[in-house]
Computed example of a mutant assay.
Amino acid sequence: MVAERLMPTQESADLIDLTRTIVARELSPHVTEYESSGEFPREVFRALGGLGLLSLPFPEEYGGGGQSYEVYLQVLEEIATGWASVGVGVSVHALSCFGLLTAGTDEQKKKWLPELLAGDKLGAYCLSEAHAGSDPAAMRTKAVRDGDDYVIRGQKAWTTHGGVADFYKVMARTSDDGANGISCFLVPADSPGLRADTPELKMGLMGSTTASMLFEDVRVPAEQRLGDEGHGLQIALAGLDAGRLGISAVATGLAQGALDVSVAYAKERETFGKPIIEHQGLAFILADMAAAVESSRATYLAAARMKDAGRPFSRQASIAKLVATDNAMKVATDAVQVLGGAGYTRDFPAERYMREAKVMQIFEGTNQIQRLVISRDLSR
């Protein structure tokens, strides 16, 4: 079964149909290969860029698709239904471009955005550090002004696309003024002194490379600072609001994939003379899974429409991320249960969905942090 969608225009409905075709033909046949080997599917991102699927929520003047977040997120969900690692990668790539669009100068946007949006260059986002994940204001990576350059020294953790990206958006400390002492920089991957550590050995999302990035006196021209000195954390947090919507859509897509596998299996597997979907105990599990998936979709779309309307959406983004990722974990776990012993084997993707769902509750701010954001907003 596929997700039922009510798209705002015929053009956006056609875009969904195109995405489903691409996922079925170009992505799904390769998932097992790449997730088993841990190889990063770089050519997939070039292909998606060439088809315009990396640039959807960005302005047409820079090579973007000019689409609303309501449309973009549903395309992203379709990609993640077929391959969660690629869905995460598309979301992170958009996050790496977001600050450039919102805080960059016209010259910076014209120089960097077209190649990124076309998929010729792949972006990454360097905010977290080993001791400063949920508390980014505690970061220690420093950028010291030296004439017309900054010299960056430190280490960034948990970088999606670390070591395979062409471009890194980096937050580094330019003064000791706490949260107001952080600035944002655009750093090409070939900058001398920049290197990736050994990729992390993860539970899931093997097709998405994650590594720490080491900055050993990396010299960055001052013209590659994004925004004013001291505004880096504001740029980062604004991007995270949009990034949380991306992960909400990815988590919903993963849950949809888990539901699809479960329903298909339950229609074919028979016990006591009838398909197991006709046994009420299991049918009710499937019904709850379907309700969770559709609730997640409705929640992220409500937040996206707030963003598209130009209204504040931080609380709604955190709610969407919390709901969609918790639901994805529950749906993926139930998918393994529906398949029984078969769900515990790699003959079916249910076990992969379960492993992949866990990290959705952790990155882009843990779900405990989302609850903190929501409760603080309520207290105002």
Rank of each mutant, 00 (worst) to 15 (best):
G243M: 08
H30V: 03
A211S: 15
M354Y: 12
S191H: 02
K307I: 01
L301W: 01
V261C: 12
L301T: 09
A249T: 13
A165N: 06
P59H: 03
L95V: 04
I235Q: 08
R153P: 02
V250N: 05
E35L: 07
L378M: 11
A291L: 15
M354F: 10
S212N: 13
A302M: 12
T252F: 09
R305T: 15
K358W: 13
F40D: 00
Q337I: 12
L214R: 13
V373Q: 01
F348Y: 15
S314W: 05
K202T: 13
I235K: 04
V151I: 15
Q316I: 00
A137D: 04
Q361S: 13
G230R: 09
P349V: 05
G181E: 02
D241L: 00
H131C: 07
A124L: 07
I374P: 02
V44H: 10
V218M: 07
G64A: 06
L205C: 06
T198L: 14
I369K: 08
S191G: 02
R311K: 15
D166V: 09
Y34K: 04
S134F: 11
P188G: 04
E294P: 01
Y72G: 05
D288C: 14
L201E: 12
L15E: 08
A291H: 05
F348W: 13
W158L: 06
E364H: 01
R145N: 10
A332Y: 06
D135A: 13
P349L: 08
A130H: 14
N180R: 15
N327Q: 12
L113G: 08
A291W: 09
L233E: 13
E351T: 14
L214E: 14
P192T: 06
V71N: 00
L245F: 11
A328R: 04
D260H: 12
G87D: 14
V336R: 09
E61T: 09
G163P: 05
S12E: 11
I362Q: 03
L6I: 07
E268C: 12
F58W: 12
E78N: 06
Q74F: 02
L245M: 07
A189R: 06
M289L: 10
G239N: 03
Q316K: 07
D197M: 11
K111F: 09
D106G: 11
S55K: 06
S37N: 04
S85Q: 10
G227P: 01
G281L: 08
L372M: 05
D176Y: 12
R5D: 04
G365P: 00
G52D: 04
K358C: 05
V86F: 07
A84T: 15
A47P: 00
V144D: 03
S208I: 00
F40C: 00
I369T: 09
V359F: 15
V86P: 01
A132I: 06
I152T: 03
S262C: 02
A130S: 14
D217L: 02
A118W: 10
A302Q: 15
Y168S: 06
V263L: 15
V144P: 02
I22V: 15
D308M: 04
P8Y: 10
S128W: 10
A357F: 14
R42Q: 10
A255R: 01
L259M: 10
G133N: 11
E11G: 00
R5E: 11
K156S: 10
A317G: 11
A317Y: 12
E26P: 06
A335N: 12
P8T: 05
A287L: 13
C184D: 07
R195L: 07
L194M: 01
Y265T: 05
G343H: 09
